[in-house]
Design a protein around this nucleic acid. Structure first.
Length: 311
DNA sequence: AACGTCACCAACCGCCAGAGC
DNA sequence: TGCTCTGGCGGTTGGTGACGT
């Protein structure tokens, strides 16, 4: 007994085993997603309460889009909300059904690294390695179908008390509308950052219209949480549990679009309604030429020419 | 085929705030 | 009022697989 206690008192770290997941799921089924520390105190797992909570939130919770790459819409939502809220990943995640703060954080981190590489490569083109591009091509059809531009609004200013940035939309020479963030301190950096996805896309040298869809899919922001429903998978999970708590907590949720690979489901209100929208009527319109003038001249040296829509 | 680089992901760590005593 | 505990959040790190050379 004492030996078992000593064993239990050891805190286990590292990857979770399926058995541990089962125990954790059972605990949540029985007591709900709370009292995490009691899991260890009861000797159910050798994990800390924090670890249990994290595992549940990030991996075991129903409705998670585990293993699904961020869709173009989700990427856009993150980019926009990051500009609005800063690194408030938990808050941003509430606008992305099925995504956790960890997902958003990881996504942004990867994105920032890519940005850094792009900037670095653009600065030293002659002796640096070309940007490594993955073969996967994300859906950018929404990027090419964004609404008409509008000037930065006061709301953008409110959301950034420092008055650092706001976003707008410009159209490149291929007729592709792009979101543009501007920064009082470093407009060049923000402009590049806001368009990293497009840059990556350009750098891939793929035909952007091959998978394009004509329909404009403008994101809309749902009420966090309350719009959740059960995916088929989680409904299966639910079916296994007759616990009233699960029914109470999850059965009322409603998010039919949570399936993997779902593309085109709105997440945000139309950007113009939230003050980050089109630039129509601005005093300082950004033309395709002026936009690309913001980039280092050699930035696209390693990129293939963008094919025309007819190709 | 081997190696290096990169992207992605899971998990941990430290800090902070709130609740309970 | 102060201490402790717990949960939440953001930052960071390490592992792994994919890809390029």
């Amino acid at each position: 007994m004492a030996g078992k206690r000593a064993e239990i008192s050891q805190i286990r770290k590292g990857p979770w085993k399926a058995e541990e997941d089962e125990v954790l799921i059972y605990h949540v089924k029985k007591y709900g997603p709370r009292d995490w520390s009691s899991i260890r105190s009861k000797g159910l797992l050798q994990r800390t309460g924090k670890s249990c909570r994290l595992r549940w939130v990030n991996k075991l919770r129903p409705n998670l889009k585990n293993g699904c790459k961020f869709t173009a819409e989700e990427e856009r939502v993150v980019i926009e909300l990051q500009g609005q809220f800063g690194n408030k990943w938990a808050k941003i995640a509430t606008y992305l059904p099925g995504r956790t703060d960890n997902d958003v954080k990881n996504f942004w981190s990867s994105r920032q690294k890519r940005l850094a590489r792009i900037l670095q490569n653009s600065g030293t083109p002659s002796h640096s390695k070309p940007l490594k591009i993955k073969k996967e091509v994300p859906d950018f059809h929404d990027v090419s179908t964004l609404e008409a531009p509008e000037s930065c609004s006061s709301m953008a200013e409110e959301s950034n008390p420092m008055g650092q940035s706001c976003s707008s939309y410009i159209e490149n020479s291929e007729g592709i509308k792009m979101e543009q963030l501007t920064d009082a301190k470093n407009p060049h950096l923000y402009t590049i950052d806001a368009n990293i996805a497009q840059l990556e896309f350009l750098s891939r040298g793929k035909n952007p219209y091959a998978e394009a869809q004509p329909q404009i899919m403008f994101p809309q922001i749902p009420q966090p949480q309350s719009y959740l429903t059960l995916s088929l998978e989680s409904q299966d999970l639910l079916a296994k549990f007759e616990d009233p708590y699960f029914s109470q907590v999850f059965a009322s949720m409603d998010v039919p679009e949570l399936g993997c690979g779902h593309v085109g489901q709105p997440f945000l209100e139309p950007v113009r309604n939230r003050g980050l929208g089109p630039r129509e009527g601005t005093d300082n319109p950004v033309t395709p030429d002026t936009f690309f003038d913001d980039f280092p001249a050699d930035m696209f040296d390693h990129m293939e020419p963008l094919p025309s829509p007819s190709q």
